[in-house]
């Protein structure tokens, strides 16, 4: 466990210092790149709460990325730039949608659960495409980023970076606390054995639904940050391949491990950036290599990348 802790601290220190190094060497692009990766890491963290600990394989998690984004973009479109209000609407709307989707979906299990969550997100995706007033498929340009008063200026690349960084660390901690609470025990227990959970006097349904709503709301925050990052929104935020990508980050990093989702987001997105920028055959056919990489990880790193870290065997 000590080795893991050291690695975690090194990782956090690296992310905390990265903007300073990038600024010193006049390579500001890396601030943007890492910020985008961390936003996806936040989405992956939220998915891990239900997928990793609760065993709810949601194939529609990008829905909340979209709803968080639309909350900001639609309000901004009507001239409301108050970032706190936007955040409140983003979280509230995501939670509400998660409540509706969850209430229906959690009655099913296994592949049926995967498919019904996908179905709901597809509906939202096609809804987004037909929202003519808000750009339809072309999407909406954010006239101004969310105004967070004097707190953080999102137009400032570095300040925005540290906000995303702080949210990521806060969510990491929050999920840690949730998982180890009494509530978290029920969620984890219902994952490993639903019948036993019932037998000891818990009906898992409300607990699972609550976790589903929390995860949706957290991903809504990721959507809020993402639309401010791109300053642009399209229904593509909710495309099913996007849900898949978030899921792969979780699996790749190691499901049900605390830092796994962050690791998965970093490796997948940075590898994508690395390979697509190469010249020649690799650059032109980089998806071939991403594909092979995914297959090999599954075949040889059974517990995801986090499983390769020292001290992993003794963990849970």
């Amino acid at each position: 466990m000590r080795a893991r802790l050291v690695l975690l601290i090194v990782g956090i220190a690296f992310l905390a210092l990265a903007p300073l190094v990038a600024t010193a060497f006049d390579q500001l692009f890396y601030i943007d790149l890492l910020r985008r990766v961390m936003i996806f890491a936040i989405a992956a963290l939220s998915l891990n709460l239900i997928l990793g600990y609760g065993g709810m394989v949601s194939f529609g998690h990008a829905a909340y990325l979209g709803i968080g984004g639309y909350a900001v973009a639609i309000l901004a479109h009507h001239g409301i730039h108050n970032g706190f209000l936007q955040l409140g609407v983003a979280v509230g709307a995501s939670a509400l949608v998660a409540l509706v989707i969850g209430a229906i979906s959690i009655r099913t299990s296994g592949i049926y659960f995967i498919m019904i969550t996908l179905a709901f997100t597809q509906m939202l995706y096609f809804l987004g495409i037909s929202l003519d007033a808000y750009g339809g498929d072309d999407g909406l340009r954010l006239a101004a980023r969310s105004d967070l008063g004097g707190l953080v200026d999102l137009g400032n690349s570095t300040a925005f970076y540290y906000l995303v960084f702080a949210v990521m660390i806060a969510f990491l901690y929050l999920i840690h606390r949730i998982v180890n609470s009494r509530f978290g025990m029920v969620i984890r227990a219902s994952n490993s054995n639903e019948a036993r959970t019932r037998a000891i006097g818990f009906s898992p349904y409300p607990y699972r639904l609550a976790a589903f709503v929390i995860a949706g709301a957290m991903c809504g925050v990721a959507g809020y940050l993402f639309v401010n990052h791109t300053a642009y929104l399209t229904p593509d935020f909710m495309h099913w391949t996007r849900s898949g990508e978030i899921m792969f980050m979780v699996i790749l990093g190691g499901i049900g491990t605390s830092v796994g989702p962050i690791l998965g987001a970093f490796v997948l997105l940075l590898l994508e950036d690395l390979l697509s920028g190469m010249t020649g055959f690799v650059g032109q056919h980089w998806q071939l290599f991403i594909g092979l990489f995914l297959v090999l990880v599954v075949l040889f790193a059974k517990r995801g990348l986090a499983g390769l870290l020292p001290g992993a065997q003794r963990n849970d």
């Binding site: 296994g110 899921m247 991403i290 599954v298």
Partner: peptide, 13 residues
């Protein structure tokens, strides 16, 4: 199932 999803998605690419 998750491993299967990940690996077969890799195969699609």
């Amino acid at each position: 199932h998750l491993d299967q999803v990940l690996a077969t998605f890799g195969l699609i690419l």
